[in-house]
Computed example of a mutant assay.
Amino acid sequence: MSSIFRWILLGLFTLVCIFFLSNIRNAFLSTQPDQIRVAIGPDTSIQKISEQLPGSQVLNEKTGLLSVPYGKSWDYIGKTLSIKGIFRANTVPLEHPIISWRYYGYSLKEQVKGFAQGDFGKFRSPFNRKEVAVLGELPNMLLRTCTYFIPGLLLAIALSVLFAMTASMFRRLGALMDGTHALLVGLPDFFLIVLIQLGAVYATKYLGHFVLLIVQVGDKTPFLIPFLTIALIPSVTIYGTLRIAIARELGQDYVVTALAKGLTRREVLVSHVMRNVMADLLAILPKATTLALASMAVAEAICGISGLGGFIVSPALQSVSSMSAICMALALVAMAFHVFYALLRKKFIVRTGEVV
């Protein structure tokens, strides 16, 4: 029970840290958080405008400078759009960007208030530019991401186990696979995605018909590109771990004894070695899943997919109010996989120790 309580505390601490880090951009200011500048027509005055904006005060009538409550500059700019006689409203730029921990703390406080009231932020849809509540869209984003993330991760595990076993059975083929593994270890995931996209473009050009969807269009979501990316990157990590683990087991006495009794190398690998490297496989799966999530985020961003990872990485969505909620949702997905792996280790891995 104490172990479960400790892991729950660790999970909560992780979510809190993600919440703080996902809002770190608010610590960097390039505009005044408590001032706006308005351009008005000849039929009104800056004083009349100020009277229609409760909490504002005139700082400079000639330049149309108004002071507003701290941190509310964008809210007040939105309010000015409904006031007749205002041509334009802008924020007031600072002479140079600054780090403001006061504004950072203010933004955290406002978000916590919103969370307490059930408001987890909004973002503008990239397709119709309408504001969408993240809580309503989150299930769709999660489903969209899982359609290729879970199959890709399962394929990565299956391929890495199969290739590691094959490389251990046939030494020459194993040397070729190890060389390919060494090459893929240094291959960036975005490079792989761009290669697949270029291949699809040239295939469509030469064949004269559509081959592969490379970006999201409406409700049509690319599947093959994120699927292959998620499958390849983690499988490289799992393959390397299993190759080392299998080589270690092949040098054990029980393998020598089994071979001496007449069992073939394949029979020893399948019946004995794979069972003993299960601990190594379950130990590397959390890291492989983290790599898969990172690759998924890059693939979604490049393909313009509105999934959990693409939402976080996409430059067009970096300043939305729902960023921290999406980051924490993605962290919960990662935690769910880690808990699942921990349960598998507890069920299938037998721990041994010396008796004192």
Rank of each mutant, 00 (worst) to 15 (best):
N23H: 12
V355E: 08
P315C: 02
I36M: 07
I193W: 11
L29D: 03
V236W: 01
H272R: 10
T63F: 05
T241I: 09
G309M: 11
V161F: 05
A247W: 00
L285T: 03
C327L: 03
T91E: 13
P33H: 05
D75L: 13
F163Y: 12
V339I: 11
G199L: 01
V273R: 03
R345V: 00
A182D: 13
T289E: 05
L317G: 08
S168C: 02
L224R: 13
L154E: 04
Q197S: 07
D253F: 05
F120R: 04
S22Q: 10
D189F: 00
I46N: 10
I233N: 15
A247R: 05
D280C: 02
T221W: 02
L65Q: 15
E61Y: 01
G121S: 11
T180I: 14
Y103A: 09
G55W: 00
T257S: 10
A260V: 02
S235Q: 07
I349W: 06
V350G: 00
A294D: 05
L282Q: 06
V112R: 15
I326P: 05
F127C: 01
K287Y: 13
L317Y: 06
F191H: 07
T180V: 14
I305L: 06
A325T: 15
A245D: 08
M165G: 11
Y202Q: 02
P139M: 12
D219N: 12
D253P: 05
